[in-house]
Amino acid sequence: MAEVKLFGNWASPFSCRVEVALKLKGVEYEFINEDVQNYKSPLLLKYNPVHKKVPVLVHNGKPISESLVILEYIDETWETGPSLLPKDPYERALVRFWTKFFDEKCLPALWNGCWSVGEEQEKAKEESTELLKILEGTLSDKKFFGGDTIGMVDIVANFISYWLIILQELVGFQVYTKEKFPKLGEWMDDYLNCNIIKENLPPKEKLTAIFRARFEAAAVTK
Rank of each mutant, 00 (worst) to 15 (best):
T138I: 08
N112V: 07
S161M: 06
K204V: 13
Y191W: 14
I197S: 02
D103V: 09
Q168F: 05
G113C: 00
C106F: 06
N200P: 08
P203C: 10
T129M: 02
I155V: 12
W111A: 07
F144N: 13
N195Y: 03
K180T: 11
L167E: 02
A109Q: 11
E122R: 08
G151V: 09
S161Y: 02
K133G: 13
T149G: 00
K100A: 14
L207Q: 08
L94N: 10
T99D: 06
P182N: 09
K125C: 02
K183S: 14
T99H: 03
P202F: 00
L201T: 05
I197Q: 00
I150K: 12
I150M: 15
K178M: 07
W187V: 10
L94G: 00
D103G: 13
V95H: 00
L131T: 01
A93K: 09
Y162G: 03
T129C: 00
D189K: 15
N158L: 14
K180A: 15
E120S: 15
I150R: 13
G172P: 02
E104Q: 14
S128D: 03
D141N: 13
E126I: 07
D189W: 09
K198T: 06
V153K: 03
N195S: 13
W163C: 03
T177G: 07
E205G: 04
K183G: 05
K178H: 08
N158R: 04
E120H: 11
S140I: 01
L167S: 10
D154E: 08
Y191M: 09
K123Y: 08
W115A: 08
Q174M: 12
L184N: 03
F101S: 05
L131E: 03
G113N: 01
E104T: 02
P182I: 14
W115H: 04
K180H: 07
C106N: 14
Q168C: 01
T129H: 02
K178F: 10
F102M: 13
T129K: 05
I165Q: 15
I150V: 15
W98G: 09
E127I: 06
S128P: 04
M188T: 14
V117A: 10
G146E: 13
M152Y: 12
G113T: 01
